[in-house]
Design a protein around this nucleic acid. Sequence first.
DNA 1: CGGCACCCTCAACCTTACGTTTAGGCGCAG
DNA 2: CTGCGCCTAAACGTAAGGTTGAGGGTGCCG
Lengths: 253, 253
Amino acid sequence: MATEQQTLAMGDPAPEAPRGKPMTIGAVCKALANEFPDISISKIRYLEDQKLLAPRRTPGGYRLYNQGDVARLRTILRLQRDEFLPLRVIRQELASGRAEGEVTPGAPAPDDGAQRPRRRPGLSEPGSGSVYSLEDVVDETRADPKLIQELQDHGVIAGEQRGGTIWYDDTEREIVRAVVELARYGVGGRNLRVFRTSADREAALLQQILAPSLRSRNPERRREAVDALENLATVTTHLKHLLLLRDLRKLVA
Amino acid sequence: MATEQQTLAMGDPAPEAPRGKPMTIGAVCKALANEFPDISISKIRYLEDQKLLAPRRTPGGYRLYNQGDVARLRTILRLQRDEFLPLRVIRQELASGRAEGEVTPGAPAPDDGAQRPRRRPGLSEPGSGSVYSLEDVVDETRADPKLIQELQDHGVIAGEQRGGTIWYDDTEREIVRAVVELARYGVGGRNLRVFRTSADREAALLQQILAPSLRSRNPERRREAVDALENLATVTTHLKHLLLLRDLRKLVA
DNA sequence: CGGCACCCTCAACCTTACGTTTAGGCGCAG
DNA sequence: CTGCGCCTAAACGTAAGGTTGAGGGTGCCG
């Protein structure tokens, strides 16, 4: 524990996170101290230095952690403590959205031995089915609302108008998250359109291949086709990633 | 690689392990060099120092490794490279009999625990680079050799000519695996070129963004850039997958 | 407005893990 | 009996993962 913590006021009756309001670094540290005894303020700052966190700031420079930030921090600490993953790898896992929620249903699918990319959101089961308001999304992804508007204008995300507000689903929230991450590296609007059109083209290709089955009136046949589609999506994604790696390796060498 | 190895005789036609007889440390090192390129004699000795190995000795003090020792060593290296486990933890796993030895006749494999997911090789991972002969690849992917030839003609995979044979790396093997899988659904040659060019374009884009840092003479700055590149690759892949899902969902609905 | 607890950055420092290098010296096969 | 390959021990190197301390600002309470 950092010395800095020793000076914390001890009279606080509620060490738990006050749900909903953003917390200062000391409060976060205190809230996680039970679950992760070797947390410290300096460590949290260090993790930020290593690009694993990026909390909002007050005008004066104080860090402010919302619930999403705290959840992310908890995930980081868990991966480090229980899975022994180096921070470099944790950074990747988080960036790819592979490690976020611990909502593990009872029956894990038995792996057939083939190497597959880790669990991503499925096709027929759109995550939790929850929806998010604009504020939710902004809060969780720290995206500039203008950016979200822009994405919507370009048709990258759509949202669903219902009762005056627009609601976004998990996938759209994740899209925003990814876009924010890319923006941090300077990948901006114009480039995103490239991704979008290539995704569109690819979707058309896959759909064309499975068109007959998808149009089938036979429900079982249709379900099979949806399954196949999902599988195809996974495999092509994997393939594209490999091709990209191959190219990049040549560039780096 | 250790300097010591540089002096090894190069005329040996069979780098494979002479099945059955105990080997000296140099022979072991040579036998594993393909699968684990960053092995070295000094490293093997170091692992012994850390109580991860305990080979027999000749009266004169030479280490002698039998097949079991080599299997154990292979397991250690795999856990280190693919699962990022620290040696301290590997020692425990081995001691508690949780060795994933596939080549251990007579040894029951009592799997009591959660199966750890295999991680994808990174961009510049220090040691993710085993190499495979054409036969290895065919054997593992069940691909038609003609298909591999075709991929090579189209520049999708390249291989590395060395000493008469062509060697493929992990990424190339996985590419073949993915292509085979896609072929099962009827996605063939012409479509693959689409993927390839889009990967090329994307690689160029990412490289352009990081070009200044990548050209940097400062090694630290360069390493950071490579890291960022890897991260970008992961995130864009994730983003593209999300976009694809979004499109497909519309098609299915 | 003053005080006090809390927060900020930046640079230096520390420990541990994971090896490599070097120096000096035997083992053993041809 | 020669020389390639192996041995030990200790010094050295490098990176990850933090901690510490100096010097100074914030924010809220009374």
